[in-house]
């Protein structure tokens, strides 16, 4: 019996091959088979025959929008920095697979002029939630998982001396479990069936748990959570929002953040990284997934998402033609945090 993901995979291969063969696009950003159980390797198919390698599974955890600006640039005909940029519609187009959050990141990239809408073909896939490899591994402490078979609702885990079936949803990543927009918001080529919006009563449950702690406990949580950071910047580089040519951590005059591993330096790095994603983050969970030390840095961006939604009623990347939450304002934005001393100044709010 073919699973939903296998069907989607077949459709991806057919569509990708067709677009490449017809010359509608010159590259397709998708996923290939990984070398380990529960992995999938992002790949760029540039020839129709490459498309046989494309797959779809529950382990496509990295946000493919991350590759889009660079791949778009790589297929442009070479031109010097001072040459006039050729018009967008004359440049080759690139197709990219996109689930709900990835498509919202593409929308953000369009809003921020990193990606030209006319050059992207979004192959929209409704997401059924991606599985956290770490969650599965934690169910089998001290044992190695050698093979995983994926069903629609179950995962069959094979080790050297055991075989167990586990419920798929129970090991889906936290961000996917609390996701409210699993279906792409931008679709040029539909792959598979649309999935319905999830009725989610508590998208910010984990954030609220931390908010309920006292100030000192929150500080203790923050310093412990980020203490293992090794500053490899996997979270930054895997993020589709991070495309600055020079990152603030690489600046040395002024040096915004120190380079060492003490709590202040790692803490500042993570705070500023998260803050730079304010109003832009779609909670795709890639940062958390790729961290080799298992740091839960998504809590910071999730907190910002919560505030952006509560204060301004906005979610990142839902409409390509609307401005981003932090590049716009209203005259009566809440300002409870403002220090006012004179009685006459107690306005707003």
């Amino acid at each position: 019996m073919t699973t939903v993901n296998e069907k989607i995979g077949e459709e991806i291969r057919v569509q990708a091959r067709k677009m490449l063969a017809e010359g509608a696009v010159v590259a397709v950003i998708g996923y290939g088979v990984g070398s380990l159980p529960m992995t999938a390797r992002p790949m760029v198919a540039r020839r129709p025959e490459d498309c046989d390698k494309l797959i779809w599974s529950s382990f496509c955890v990295l946000n493919l929008a991350n590759y889009l600006p660079e791949v778009l640039k790589s297929v442009e005909p070479p031109h010097g920095p001072r040459d006039p940029k050729p018009p967008e519609d004359s440049l080759p187009r690139v197709a990219v697979l996109a689930t709900g959050c990835w498509s919202r990141n593409i929308v953000v990239q369009i809003q921020e002029h990193q990606v030209a809408r006319t050059r992207v073909v979004v192959m929209g896939v409704g997401s059924r939630g991606m599985v956290s490899r770490r969650k599965v591994e934690s169910l089998f402490p001290g044992k190695e998982i050698l093979r995983v078979e994926e069903g629609d609702h179950d995962l069959v885990i094979h080790g050297a001396d055991f075989t167990e079936t586990i419920n798929r949803w129970s090991v889906v990543r936290d961000n996917c479990q609390t996701c409210t927009h699993p279906d792409p918001v931008l679709v040029d080529v539909r792959i598979g069936d649309p999935v319905s919006e999830r009725k989610n009563p508590k998208p910010f449950k984990q954030v609220e748990e931390i908010e309920r702690l006292s100030v000192d406990d929150r500080w203790a949580w923050f310093t412990t959570e980020f203490s293992t950071c090794i500053r490899c910047y996997a979270c930054r580089n895997a993020c589709p929002l991070c495309y600055c040519p020079t990152c603030f951590v690489d600046d040395d005059k002024p040096q915004w953040v120190g380079k060492s591993l003490d709590t202040v330096d790692t803490g500042l790095f993570h705070l500023l990284r998260a803050y730079h994603c304010a109003g832009r983050c779609t909670d795709c969970g890639t940062c958390e997934t790729v961290c080799p030390m298992g740091i839960n840095m998504r809590m910071l961006t999730k907190k910002l998402n919560k505030d952006v939604l509560n204060l301004y009623g906005l979610e990142a990347g839902m409409q390509p033609d609307a401005p981003l939450p932090l590049t716009t304002y209203t005259l009566d934005d809440p300002q409870k945090f403002i220090v006012t001393e004179a009685p006459s100044a107690k306005e707003g709010e």
Partner: peptide
């Protein structure tokens, strides 16, 4: 194409 140029491996 696949690499995201993070420093995790190194």
């Amino acid at each position: 194409d696949s690499c995201i140029n993070c420093g995790a491996c190194t």
